[in-house]
């Protein structure tokens, strides 16, 4: 149900773009207005969401400590997994964001004849990493459309990405990796009963959307061989706020563009915001130093307590009888 719904939502988006162009000729809408609007929603929404999180304070220092604390010089502290300094935290966060450190720990619990075992399970980590990194490389590669003179870094990335030297135009590895990883992530959501059980529509939509973007992009490059100069003129026009509707780029380009716009507009409302959220996570981005340095809670307020005086009033005689010293005789 959820899968079908999500799938058809994305199909509907494709149809919308197709019909909008083929029948209604809405080139300006799909080529200019929607991309601008989507980008605006993305930026404003993203910033808004992050600000919203940041507006809630961090009253307590609650890092999840995943290694030995700092205590004595002769006990080796795990400075990254249980950082006590800002540098430690920075490295911990870098590992988390760039290498998905926590996911790397993943195990699979298995029960055989009542015996439990926890084998290492790196598939999710691998697929997640492959997906995110190839997405990033593809994103960077796309900057060549936006720059009149393509910077040499982008050339470098392109040539690395296509070093297999297969096909004309050259096949990019990241295209394959991205599609494979997203497919894996989708299949795992379907076939692992537990993951299937927890999945929501909001988990399938991004997968189909990204798959749609990737497939339309690949079709454009390898099959329809869309007019590159046209695309480039169009992209440069867009970023210079001087949009031109290009000639001869075909409807597939607009479908690709519309799906990307949809992803951008959807982003701030969705779980994809984990991209911003990961940086704010108090269990990861705080040093475990609250015994060394006081952490202040901005909304701290006085509470009702039971004082020693009240306690002694309740028990004075009993205390005196057994020789426990008291304040008031």
């Amino acid at each position: 149900m959820k899968i079908i719904f999500s799938f058809f939502t994305v199909v509907l988006l494709v149809l919308l773009a197709f019909l909008g162009l083929k029948i209604a000729n809405l080139y300006y809408l799909f080529g200019v207005i929607i991309p601008y609007a989507a980008l605006a929603i993305f930026i404003i929404g993203f910033v808004y969401r992050v600000m919203k999180w940041a507006s809630s304070p961090v009253p307590f220092r609650i890092p999840t400590t995943c290694g030995q604390q700092k205590s004595f010089p002769w006990i080796k502290q795990n400075k990254i997994e249980n950082p006590s300094s800002t540098w430690g935290v920075i490295i911990r966060m870098l590992l988390e964001v760039l290498a998905f450190r926590s996911l790397f720990r993943n195990t699979k619990t298995e029960s055989r004849d009542g015996k439990l075992s926890y084998g290492s399970d790196k598939w999710l980590w691998m697929a997640g990493l492959a997906f995110h990194w190839s997405f990033l490389v593809i994103l960077i590669r796309h900057f060549r459309f936006f720059a009149a003179d393509v910077p040499s870094v982008i050339h470098l990335i392109e040539s690395l990405d296509s070093f297999l030297q297969i096909g004309v135009p050259l096949l990019y590895m990241t295209d394959i990796v991205l599609v494979a990883a997203v497919t894996f992530l989708f299949i795992r959501r379907v076939v692992i009963p537990q993951v299937n059980y927890i999945s929501l529509i909001a988990d399938y939509i991004p997968l189909f959307l990204i798959l749609g973007i990737a497939i339309s992009g690949i079709l454009m490059r390898y099959l329809f061989k869309v007019h590159l100069v046209g695309v480039k003129n169009f992209a440069i026009g867009l970023i210079n706020f001087n949009p031109v509707i290009p000639e001869g780029v075909g409807v597939i380009f607009y479908i690709h563009l519309f799906l990307i716009s949809s992803l951008f507009a959807y982003f701030p409302f969705s779980k994809l915001m984990h991209a911003g959220g990961v940086f704010l996570s108090p269990t990861r981005n705080l040093a475990n130093n609250s015994r060394m340095k006081r952490h202040v809670n901005p909304w701290d307020y006085p509470v009702k307590v039971h004082t020693y005086e009240e306690y002694e009033d309740d028990f004075r005689e009993k205390m005196k009888n057994v020789g426990i010293p008291v304040e008031k005789e």
């Binding site: 999710l124 537990q194 993951v195 984990h274």
Partner: peptide
């Protein structure tokens, strides 16, 4: 807000 329901925590 940020859970992606990847299921890594499940078991």
């Amino acid at each position: 807000d940020v859970c992606v329901r990847c299921g890594a925590c499940a078991d």
